[in-house]
Design a protein around this nucleic acid. Structure first.
Length: 669
DNA sequence: GGATAACCTATTTTT
DNA sequence: TAGGTTATCC
């Protein structure tokens, strides 16, 4: 795109007051954001006074890089940050005012999970009907909506009567351990600014111009942060698309964008509707489908790219046939296209399994996005817990996690004893270890191990107290205490031992990288914060760059913001997409937005697949096509069977592929 | 303390 | 079907 269209230009020229930029899919919003920032600077706004907020680190990095392309080194003094990283920096400076330690650490999801389990079991709330994930979700939603436990008490629609009790305990335990979860970072920033107007004033003065990306995904807490920070001056520009709001289940409030003018009086609204990505056939379908939603702002995407080809809807016998068809179809498009031109999207992760299997059989290179992250590995969590405990002595949870890893004779009995002491004295485990009389009450072997453990921790704390040489310290440290080696040995008898050891090695390397990148000026605390706030798809990025050419497999959620020449959507069936539970919970419109996101990822071609029978929970059952299929206007779509969708190979090609097959068969095993 | 067996349950997961 | 968690046993 060489120059801006009139709407884009208008957005770039609107520099003061509240601005809502409704940017449809593929309408060049990032270009506008970047140009607008450059324009602000051109009009005399100091880069230090500009704050741009995104949701992901990746988005922040990209924005910064592109602004740098426009402004050069001036861009360095501007703040581009995620909501959470920004709040973390605010809280690191001021959170003592709210009774937390400034050296708080950040609770990861596995951490939250473990903590809520512990709380639920101590309240006797285990077994059927007590789902820790659900409780955690409720707490998260409450925090996102800035509700405290008392407010939850008065609510009628809580799924568990004990909700507010659990929330209160969870919060108490986190605070005792000087930990914040992700929602706390937002909630406490709001609380801080509300209770200390002079602190808020400081930030208002520092940042005169705000910009928020992916505005449709903001929750109530984030809205408060923006309202407070924008203050009376109200120089805030938000960019988003209500039709692409697909994170309601994480607390995103569509009302933030639908009622923007009510929250920010005098706001200007600009629509970007010219799309630079897709064919008009695709856009007309997407427009028609999304128009069926009630809660939205009117928009109509169009492009200058011509009509392009019709959308294809293919009906397959079952999920295996569907995967087989998808594989064959992609192969049939070769070699005119390359593997990386295709993305196969699905509603839920488990659908990937059949596809993966088929792709392996068919020897199609693929990349599964969003599969379990590096940081979910047991050994990595152990290693992080270890560092966490060194950094934050109050972290009882990490203590419990690694006090006996690798096994050093500190069993359930000893732990139970320590817990008793903790309940009586209200001191954390680390403090308890300072009392010799308590150690005496433990089994002899355990007491010995614990003393040793304590000594190791103390030594490590003094080693890590100063910034720099993180990596050296860590490697030496791990070697000295035999933690690293111990872990390696621990996994030796199993065949996954090598992988786990490699993972630990990689983790140490990431420490080294971090150290080097920041020229040895960073502390352990900063490293831990970085890995907590890092979006874990960073690893995916690396994979993607390395994997030169492969088909992408991912959920529709993961595909937001991406584009591919050809999109294949699998499992377009009732109860799968829209998801049964979403419909039951009254979220059909969000499912439709999700479908809209899927459609608008495609540049040239869209292929929608569904099966007639599918194995669900081990049982084969007859399934029906999704209602979304019937929402696509008939003139843009063609229905067919797998065989009709694949262009037959020419004689020459089929001869060739036969040759290949023979070669493969003879070389295999 | 650790291995094994039985048991349960299946959305999405930016930080 | 497959995974993750819990229960049980040695």
């Amino acid at each position: 795109m060489s120059e801006l269209n009139p709407q884009q230009q208008l957005a770039v020229d609107t520099l003061t007051g509240p601005l809502l930029l409704l940017a449809g899919a593929g309408t060049g919003k990032t270009t506008v954001i970047v140009h607008r920032i450059a324009n602000l600077v051109r009009h005399g706004i100091r880069p230090e006074a500009i704050l741009a907020v995104t949701f992901t680190n990746k988005a922040a990095r990209e924005m910064k890089a592109r602004v740098k392309g426009q402004l050069g080194s001036q861009a360095d003094s501007m703040t581009v940050s995620t909501f959470h990283a920004f709040c973390a920096s605010v809280l690191r400076r001021h959170i003592h005012q709210l009774g937390y330690s400034r050296s708080f650490s950040i609770a990861s999801d596995s951490y939250q999970n473990g903590l809520i389990r512990e709380i639920m079991s101590s309240e006797g709330l285990t077994g059927k009907g007590f789902d820790p994930g659900m409780v955690l979700h409720q707490i998260s939603m409450a925090k996102a909506a800035l509700k405290d436990p008392d407010q939850l008490e008065n609510e009628k629609q809580v799924p568990l009567p004990q909700m507010s009790l659990l929330y209160r305990n969870y919060q108490k335990r986190l605070q005792q351990m000087d930990m914040l979860d992700f929602d706390d970072m937002l909630m406490l920033t709001v609380r801080l600014w509300q209770q200390y107007p002079e602190i808020l004033a400081h930030y208002q003065k520092q940042y005169s111009h705000l910009m928020i990306d992916e505005y449709q995904d903001t929750n109530a807490a984030q809205l408060q942060i923006m309202l407070l920070l924008a203050g009376k001056a109200g120089n805030i520009a938000v960019v988003g698309d209500d039709d692409q709001s697909i994170y309601g289940w994480r607390g995103a409030d569509l009302g933030n964008i639908l009622q923007f003018e009510a929250y920010f009086p005098g706001a200007k609204v600009i629509r970007l509707e010219q799309n630079y990505r897709s064919t008009n056939t695709i856009l007309k379908c997407a427009n028609a489908v999304i128009a069926l939603n009630q809660a939205r702002r009117e928009k109509n995407l169009w492009s200058q790219q011509g009509d392009g080809e019709k959308i294809l809807s293919v009906s397959c016998a079952d999920e295996k046939a569907e995967a087989d068809f998808i594989a064959k179809y992609i192969q049939s498009q070769m070699p005119e296209l390359s593997w990386k031109d295709f993305a196969v999207l699905f509603r839920s992760n488990h659908q990937a399994r059949v596809l993966e299997e088929q792709f392996r059989k068919s020897r199609i290179p693929y990349l599964l996005v969003g599969a379990n992250s590096f940081y979910h590995n047991k050994e990595i969590l152990d290693a992080i817990s270890f560092l966490q405990l060194i950094q934050n002595p109050s972290d009882d949870f990490s203590f419990l996690r690694i006090v006996n890893v690798p096994p050093r004779g500190i069993g359930d009995t000893s732990i139970a004893r320590l817990r008793e002491f903790r309940d009586i004295t209200h001191q954390n485990f680390n403090q308890l270890l300072d009392h010799p009389e308590i150690l005496e009450k433990l089994p002899e072997e355990a007491a010995g191990s614990i003393k040793q453990f304590r000594a190791v921790l103390q030594k490590a704390r003094s080693e890590f107290a100063r910034p720099g040489q993180l990596f050296d310290k860590a490697t030496n440290f791990f070697e000295q205490i035999d933690f690293f080696n111990g872990l390696g040995r621990m996994y030796k008898p199993r065949e996954d031992a090598l992988r786990r050891r490699d993972n630990l090695m990689e983790f140490l390397n990431s420490l080294a990288d971090f150290d080097e990148e920041h020229r040895n000026h960073k502390t352990l605390q900063e490293f831990l914060e970085a890995i907590s706030l890092q979006d874990h798809s960073d690893n995916q990025e690396k994979n993607k760059n390395n994997a030169s050419d492969s088909v992408t497999l991912m959920t529709v959620h993961a595909a937001k913001g991406l584009e591919f020449p050809m999109i294949l959507l699998a499992g377009l069936e009732r109860n799968i997409f829209p998801h049964q539970r979403a419909v039951e919970e009254g979220n059909e419109e969000e499912e439709r937005r999700l479908f809209y996101v899927a459609l608008t990822r495609a540049r040239k071609n869209l292929l929608l697949c569904h099966a007639e029978k599918r194995r669900v929970m081990g049982q084969v059952s007859v399934v029906r096509p999704s209602k979304f299929l019937s929402e696509i206007p008939e003139e843009y779509i063609e229905f067919c069977k797998p065989a009709d969708a694949i262009k037959p190979l020419s004689k020459e090609e089929s001869h060739q592929s036969l040759q290949e097959l023979i070669k493969e068969l003879s070389s295999d095993e």
